[in-house]
Each structure stands twice: as C-alpha cells, then as structure tokens.
C-alpha cells in the first residue's frame, strides 16, 4: 500500500515535470516553425503551425549570409583552441603535480587568478595589446587568447587527475630508458582520458558559444563566428526581416543542439565533473 502511494506521488511529480519540460521547449518550437514561413506568415500568424514547409529562407540565409563561412570559423577556432588548451594544460598540470614544492604552489596560485579576476578587467587593454602585435581582427590571435585564458582551469583539473596516476609507471619507464617527455606523452597522457573528455566538452561549449571576445576582437565579417555573425545579421541585413532573422537563429542553434543530442551523456558528465572537482 505504501509503495503504491509512493509510486503514485512519483507519477504526479513526473507529470508536472513533463509539463515543465514542454514549457522549456516552447521557445525553440516557435523558432523552428517560423523558419518555414514567409515574412507575412511570421508577422501575422506567428503562433500558427505552417501550412507548408518552405525552405526559401534557409536557402537565402545559407547563401547570402555566408553561413558556411561562419560555421567553418567557429569550427576552426573551437577545435584549434581546445587542442592547444589540452596540450599546454596537460603538460603544465603534470609537471606541477609531480614536482610540487614552493615554486609549483606559487605557480598554481598565479594561474588561479583567472578564476578570481573577471574578464572585464582585461577586456580593454587586451584589444590594444593585440593591436600592437597585429593580432587584432585575426582568428589566430583569438585562438591564442582562448588558450591563454582557458588553460588555467584545465591545469587545475589535470593537476588533480595526475595525483591518481601511480608514480611507479614513470619509474619503470625511466628504467626502460624513456625520457620524461616521451613518458608523459606515451604513458601518462593516455591515462588522463576521463578528465580530458571533461575539459574538451566544457571548453568546446564555452568557446563555440562565446560572444564577448569575438565582439571586441573581430571586425571583418568573413572572420566572424556563428554567435557574432548571427547577431550582425539580426541587427543589420535582416533587421525587420523577421523570417530571415528567425531562420538565422535556427541555423545557428543546429550545430550545438546536434552535438548535444549525440554527446549528451558526456556533456552532462563533463558539467558535473567540472563543477565537483573544480
């Protein structure tokens, strides 16, 4: 009897949560259905399900806005930055973890500054600095900045993960004649898989979706990433052209939603690992 009552309670709570989930998806639903309408349909019958699925908006936005270029920029900037973060932070995290001591302790505190001091503190000088290096309005320049600013947290996570790798591994590798650098890349790094996945997921989501950095660093339109490119379209060419603006929004969300649906379990795990250990 008690069990029945409990499962009934669970069902009622479950139904409420289904309602919440539907509520959460409503905005996405309206963006999707309005992508298939013409301007009149969007403005007058925003809430209606479209009579027919018309792909004109997609063709227009895809061709005219240079969407493939935006996509490629986002892809290249995200992938190269994440690779750079992985390389530099795993190396530093390893060394700092294995050779502790005063120097290592000081360096970790130095890197942790990035968790305390917000980005706005460096926003204005950063633009000037990159100008001086001729790295402003430059995708490579932005990648460097992402690596510099996102690595510290990853160093922190690697620093913790390396502790659980037994030291005997290095000792036996050293007896076999492998140098420290080779030992790190062939023996230690492959063992850090789980935390590496977490770092990839957190940084990929963050860099792909970042808006402020490209907003202040990139001005040329063919160098823009998806969030900033879509924003430029929405306020620029497609201002008042709601049907095209909405289609651009929909297109902008597709890559990440696809990634989410494919890698969902890993993303959820990455979020929880990143916050429990970070």
């Amino acid at each position: 009897m008690r069990i029945n009552k409990q499962s009934l309670n669970e069902k009622i709570v479950g139904l409420i949560m289904i309602f919440v989930a539907v509520l959460w998806l409503i905005p996405i639903y309206f963006i999707v259905i309005n992508s298939f309408k013409d301007l009149r349909g969007v403005v007058i019958f925003t809430e209606k399900f479209p009579d027919s699925f018309n792909f004109d908006n997609f063709i227009e936005v895809w061709k005219v806005s240079g969407f493939p270029q935006l996509f490629m920029n986002s892809m290249i900037i995200t992938v190269v930055s994440v690779l750079g973060i992985l390389l530099f932070s795993s190396m530093a995290g390893y060394k700092l973890s294995r050779n502790g001591g005063k120097g290592a302790h000081f360096l970790i505190l130095y890197f942790i500054l990035v968790l305390i001091i917000p980005f706005q503190a460096i926003m204005i000088p950063l633009v000037k600095l990159l100008k001086d290096f001729s790295l402003i309005d430059n995708r490579f320049g932005m990648i460097i900045v992402y690596i510099a600013l996102q690595s510290p947290l990853a160093i922190f996570l690697y620093h913790g993960a390396v502790k659980s790798v037994p030291r005997e591994l290095e000792d036996s590798a050293s007896i076999d004649g492998a140098g420290p650098i080779r030992t790190f890349f062939t023996i230690i790094l492959p063992l850090l898989g789980p935390i590496t996945t977490t770092i990839i997921i957190l940084n990929a989501l963050w860099i792909w979706n970042d808006f402020l950095m490209p907003l202040i660093l990139i001005t040329t339109s063919y160098k823009k990433t998806i969030p900033i490119g879509t924003t430029a379209l929405f306020f620029g060419r497609y201002a008042n052209k709601w049907h095209l603006g909405i289609t651009a929004i929909f297109l902008a969300t597709i890559p990440m939603i696809t990634f989410y649906l494919i890698a969902q379990k890993r993303i959820i795990k990455g979020v929880t690992n990143g916050s429990i250990k970070g």
């Binding site: 919440v20 979706n209 808006f211 969030p227 879509t230 924003t231 929004i249 969300t253 990440m256 989410y260």
Partner: peptide, 11 residues
C-alpha cells in the same frame, strides 16, 4: 531543461 545551455546566450 538543460537544452538552452548548449545554445549561445546571445542567440
């Protein structure tokens, strides 16, 4: 409920 998190905030 988690879905909005994978979308850029500006979007």
């Amino acid at each position: 409920i988690f879905l909005p998190n994978v979308i850029s905030m500006v979007i």
